[in-house]
Design a protein around this nucleic acid. Structure first.
Length: 583
RNA sequence: GCGCCUGUAGCUCAGGUGGAUAGAGCAUCGGACUUCUAAUCCGAUGGUCGCAGGUUCGAGUCCUGCCAGGCGCGCCA
């Protein structure tokens, strides 16, 4: 956090350091070679047997340099020999350069990481702002299980970018404007059950909306009236306006309950309605720039040059639509926050819309990097989730069930724990399991929702990671209990066991992983890493004694445990998952 | 019809810029708790990476064509 002014903002990661040495070695041996084309980078070894890192550039360089790849690799390897970081440099196969770090260098790297602010995570985001648009549920509709994807992925992306030094503004762009409100107002006035509104307001709003919507289909007069109510609302009619505000207040109260349970928060909650007054100005701007023209009564931006279908910015009835609101929103955000990037997290169905809208925005002068992070639709084994057919599973229900199952396990595993603590642990474990189930897979894959998968609590799951963290806490406590005068925190780390060394190597990669997760916009990369880290720790824990080890060795191993706990908890925090001290 | 995405073990999924015998979890089978939390660990079984061509030293990864599925394609968001 408090990076002193004289320190570089970005500390090199282990991969950076090794890549720099490889580059220097290539440059020394082949001064005429184009290093940019060769990109002699260090990548993690594909197999422990090959070493810690490898470089594959010699094979690619063979054609450019007109030399056999093994010769190139050998000359680079010779150049690297004696490097203080490396214990071994070997040429293998067709021309792989295999690097094995010196144990002392790896141990020192860990000690530096342990001492560094933020665990040595680089800070490429210092001085930069990112605006993140995620969650964005519709007012007067319950949040169901599919909403968790945008919410949880967006929140994790926010945390990951913050760790890299970015200023990140999370904005919940609520669906609080549009044609549905006329229908809802009619439903509210005619079908409302006030008792139901008190106990379950959103369910009741949803119920009267569905009734009113059905009546629109059967009764043209009803439909006209609904349209009229919408016009009145948009014209600022006080009654309808008050009703609309009620819908928003009730919805936000419900959404906030769920966000609290999930540990998700926003810096801004600006729904579509926030930009209403700006919409005519957007149209005027597009017209002035000559980006739009009338077609079939609507105002349309034609994007033939970009090989995209036309984008309607004003309907033939004079009303505005999604594209108009999104343009108004992006103009407003650019002006107010001057972000370096705006990232939208929505489901896959909106890809075309975003490509169109980004194209129009750029033509209208928006230079900010605009990114659409999309994720696959969530469905049920029997088909799509549907609110109307009642197959949608409410998010609350899923979270309740997750906590209930977690509580069963906690009560069974820790019967001596005070009930209140059991409930607290069950909350962290249950919610963590649900979030992790989503975060641990590639966002772009479609998810078929099953209770079994969403609530998995063994194997590759949040509880596995939380369990590893809790075991470490326990080791720490036992250490302090048995060795009150011991001091592992400043003990030198020595890598004297194979499981310990594997763990150490993985720990040293943490900063690179956080960086990659942000660059590739995939929290799943971080989740995968944390799972592997936990596996390596579990193996270390199971096979290497800590507290019974001799003086010195014990301290070194416990310190490795402590560092693992820090990385694990830090990483889980970036995913928005809390790790209790005890499970 | 056009566009985007997906197809990897019985099931659910990982597999940066092409790299060495394709990896996990679940399930199945066999071991390990008088010892730091067994929600764990150790081991085994399990694969024509949808199909067919191509590019090259080398393809799950890149290109082309098929097959199967999902999503989208002018006044919804």
């Amino acid at each position: 956090m408090n990076t002193p002014a004289n320190q570089p903002a970005t500390v090199p990661t282990l991969r950076d350091i090794l890549s720099a040495r490889l580059r220097a070695a290539f440059a020394a041996v082949f001064p005429e070679a184009d290093l940019a084309a060769l990109a002699p980078d260090a990548v993690p070894a594909t197999d422990d047997a090959f070493g810690d890192y490898q470089c594959n550039a010699a094979m690619a360089a063979a054609r450019l340099l007109r030399l056999p790849p093994r010769d190139i690799a050998q000359r680079v390897a010779d150049q690297l020999a004696g490097d203080d970081l490396l214990a071994r440099v070997e040429v293998a196969g067709p021309g792989f350069i295999n690097l094995t770090l010196a144990d002392t260098a790896l141990a020192r790297r860990l000690e530096d990481l342990h001492a560094a602010p933020a665990l040595g995570i680089p800070q490429p985001g210092l001085g930069k702002t990112i605006l993140l648009d995620y969650s964005s549920p519709n007012v007067a509709k319950p949040m169901h299980v599919a909403h968790i994807r945008s919410t949880v992925i967006g929140d994790a992306l926010k945390r990951i970018h913050r760790a890299l030094g970015y200023r990140v503004i999370g904005d919940n762009h609520l669906g609080d404007w549009g044609t549905q409100f006329g229908i809802l107002i009619m439903g509210y006035r005619h079908f409302l059950d006030t008792a139901a509104l008190d106990t379950a307001p959103i369910d009741e709003l949803q119920r009267v909306y569905v009734l009113s919507h059905q009546k629109c289909d059967d009764d043209p007069e009803w439909k006209d009236q609904a349209r009229l109510e919408l016009v009145k609302l948009q014209a600022g009619d006080p009654d309808n306006r008050a009703l609309w505000q009620t819908f928003i207040d009730l919805s936000l109260a419900e959404f906030n309950r769920i966000y609290d349970r999930l540990g998700v928060s926003f810096e801004l909650v600006r729904g579509e309605s926030y930009y209403n007054d700006a919409l005519p100005g957007v149209i005027a701007k597009l017209e002035n720039l000559g980006l739009v023209r009338e077609s079939e009564g609507a105002l349309v931006a034609f994007l033939d040059d970009d090989q995209l279908p036309p984008c309607i910015v004003r309907k033939s009835d004079g009303g505005y639509n999604y594209a108009t609101t999104d343009l108004a929103t992006v103009f407003s955000r650019v002006e107010e926050f001057q972000p370096d990037a705006i990232i939208y997290v929505t489901d896959e169905r909106q890809q075309l819309h975003f490509r169109q809208f980004f194209t129009v925005a750029r033509k209208a002068g928006v230079q900010t990097r605009l990114r659409h992070i999309w994720f696959g639709l969530m469905r049920l084994p029997e088909g799509l989730l549907s609110t109307r057919s009642g197959t949608a599973i409410k998010l609350d229900l899923l979270l309740d069930e997750a906590e209930r199952r977690a509580l069963d396990i906690v009560q069974q595993a820790s019967p001596g724990m005070p009930p209140e603590q059991q409930r607290e642990v069950a909350r962290a474990v249950g919610i963590g399991a649900v979030k992790y189930a989503d975060l641990s897979q590639n966002p772009q894959s479609a998810i078929t929702f099953t209770w079994e998968k969403a609530l998995a609590m063994d194997g590759n799951s949040a509880p596995y990671l939380q369990y590893a963290a809790a075991r470490i806490s326990s080791v720490m406590d036992k250490y302090r209990e048995r060795f009150p005068d011991g001091d592992f925190a400043s003990a030198p780390i020595t890598l004297d066991s194979a499981p310990g060394r594997r763990l150490a190597l993985r720990l040293a990669r943490y900063p690179d992983v956080v960086l990659d997760a942000a660059l590739q916009e995939k929290p799943s990369l971080l989740a995968d890493y944390l799972y592997e880290l936990s596996q390596l720790y579990s193996s270390f824990y199971q096979n290497v004694p800590f507290l019974k080890a001799p003086d010195g060795v014990r301290e070194s191993r416990v310190r490795l445990c402590a560092l693992t706990a820090r990385v694990l908890r830090h990483g889980l925090e970036l995913l928005g998952i809390t790790a209790p001290e005890r499970i």
